[in-house]
């Protein structure tokens, strides 16, 4: 009969209306500033730069421990071109003890960034990762949203905190690389020693 559907719909909404006052599971709203839900493992907002600190919890060595070697791949890959990197003139040893360049300037304009994560994908040094911090509003829309390298630098412990599984994988990979590099260095040294011995033997 005509009008039946209307009455059915009205009954449904009335059930919602009164039900929302009695059953708490109907109201799924999280009242944000007071209540928060823990961020998901896969959550991502804007990128940050990872640094390894010698004594965890201390942010003093953000400059020396920074993994970034200023290779500028991310700058070139960034679709909206929001990354600005200036390479250093000198070199400093990285985590593997190899002398590397480092960024004198590393700015990300997060008003332009579109959170695509391409910079993270292309980085060969595991130096740039996605942050979960989203309360980034400022009163200065130009300067306030242009983050410099000090603002971007976050410790590896922080990375472990926000993406535990991913960070563990990255650490394992880095350790494996270090072991491989060490082994290679050792074998190279052994070879050098053997070669030296051989030369010495020939000469003898």
């Amino acid at each position: 009969m005509l009008g039946e559907g209307i009455l059915k719909g009205m009954a449904e909404t009335a059930k919602n209306f009164f039900g929302s006052y009695f059953s708490a599971e109907r109201l799924t709203t999280v009242e944000y500033p007071e209540q928060r839900i823990a961020p998901f493992e896969a959550a991502r907002v804007f990128p940050f730069l990872v640094f390894d600190s010698k004594n965890p919890g201390d942010g003093a060595d953000w400059q020396t421990g920074m993994r970034c070697v200023a290779c500028q791949i991310c700058e070139k890959e960034c679709p909206p071109k929001c990354i600005f990197i200036e390479k250093s003139k000198d070199k400093k040893p990285d985590a593997l003890g190899k002398p590397q360049f480092y960024p004198v300037k590393f700015d990300i304009d997060i008003s332009v960034c579109m959170s695509c994560q391409i910079c993270v994908e292309v980085c060969p040094f595991e130096a740039i990762k996605m942050d979960t911090e989203f309360e980034l509003s400022t009163v200065d829309r130009f300067g306030g949203l242009l983050l410099d390298r000090q603002q971007l630098a976050k410790s590896n412990e922080y990375y472990h905190q926000i993406h535990p599984a991913e960070a563990a994988g990255v650490d394992a990979r880095l350790v494996a690389e270090k072991v491989k590099a060490d082994a290679k260095a050792r074998s190279a040294a052994d070879a050098a020693v053997a070669k030296a011995a051989a030369i010495a033997g020939e000469g003898a």
């Binding site: 909404t13 919602n16 209306f17 039900g19 929302s20 006052y21 109907r26 109201l27 799924t28 709203t29 009242e31």
Partner: peptide, 8 residues
């Protein structure tokens, strides 16, 4: 309206 849509 919010209550009808199970909001606050």
């Amino acid at each position: 309206l919010a209550r009808i849509q199970n909001r606050l």
